[in-house]
Structures are given as C-alpha cells and as structure tokens.
Simulated assay, not measured.
Amino acid sequence: MGELPAISGVAELWRLTTGDDRITVAVIDGLIDEAHPAFTRVRLTQILDA
C-alpha cells in the first residue's frame, strides 16, 4: 500500500470523518480500577469475543 496522502480521496475522507472530540475509544487489555478518579463520569462498555 502506498502512502496514505497519495491515495486518491483520502485527504477529503479524513476531513469528513475525523470524529467528535467528545468521544474517545480505548482498548484496555487488563483489569482496571473503576474507582480511580480518571474514570469519574466515564461510561465503560465491556465487549467479549464470542
């Protein structure tokens, strides 16, 4: 695959799909302390492999 900027239409697609600053997605691969202040007012969703 070539460099992303060289692929036709990627720059415009990136401009249109950069998301919403209010949304953050993270992958956590271990246990977390949900009582930690960093998780105050955070909605955590667990997704399990089927």
Score class of each variant (00 low, 15 high):
M1R: 05
M1L: 06
M1Y: 11
G2V: 08
G2C: 06
G2N: 03
G2H: 03
E3I: 03
E3C: 07
L4M: 07
P5F: 09
P5Y: 02
A6E: 13
A6V: 02
A6W: 02
A6K: 11
I7Q: 14
I7C: 08
I7N: 04
S8P: 04
S8E: 12
G9I: 00
G9E: 01
V10H: 09
V10R: 00
A11Y: 03
A11R: 08
E12D: 12
E12M: 05
L13A: 06
L13I: 01
W14V: 11
W14Q: 12
W14A: 13
W14E: 08
W14Y: 10
W14D: 04
R15I: 00
R15W: 05
L16V: 01
L16P: 01
L16W: 07
L16I: 02
T17N: 14
T17P: 05
T18L: 11
T18P: 03
T18N: 15
G19V: 02
G19T: 06
G19W: 11
D20T: 04
D20W: 15
D20I: 09
D20P: 09
D21V: 09
D21R: 09
D21G: 06
R22S: 15
R22Q: 13
R22T: 14
I23S: 10
T24E: 12
T24I: 10
V25M: 04
A26K: 08
A26C: 10
A26S: 09
A26Q: 12
A26G: 05
A26Y: 07
V27R: 00
I28W: 03
I28S: 02
D29L: 11
D29W: 12
D29F: 09
D29Q: 13
D29S: 08
G30L: 00
L31D: 04
L31E: 09
I32T: 06
I32Y: 05
D33P: 06
D33E: 13
D33W: 09
D33S: 09
E34S: 12
E34V: 14
E34D: 11
H36S: 14
H36T: 01
H36A: 14
P37K: 05
F39R: 01
F39L: 07
T40L: 14
T40V: 12
R41C: 11
R41M: 08
V42G: 04
V42H: 07
R43M: 08
L44A: 10
L44G: 02
T45S: 11
T45D: 14
T45C: 13
Q46R: 15
Q46C: 09
Q46S: 13
Q46M: 10
Q46E: 14
I47F: 15
I47T: 10
L48H: 10
L48V: 08
L48K: 02
A50M: 06
A50L: 11
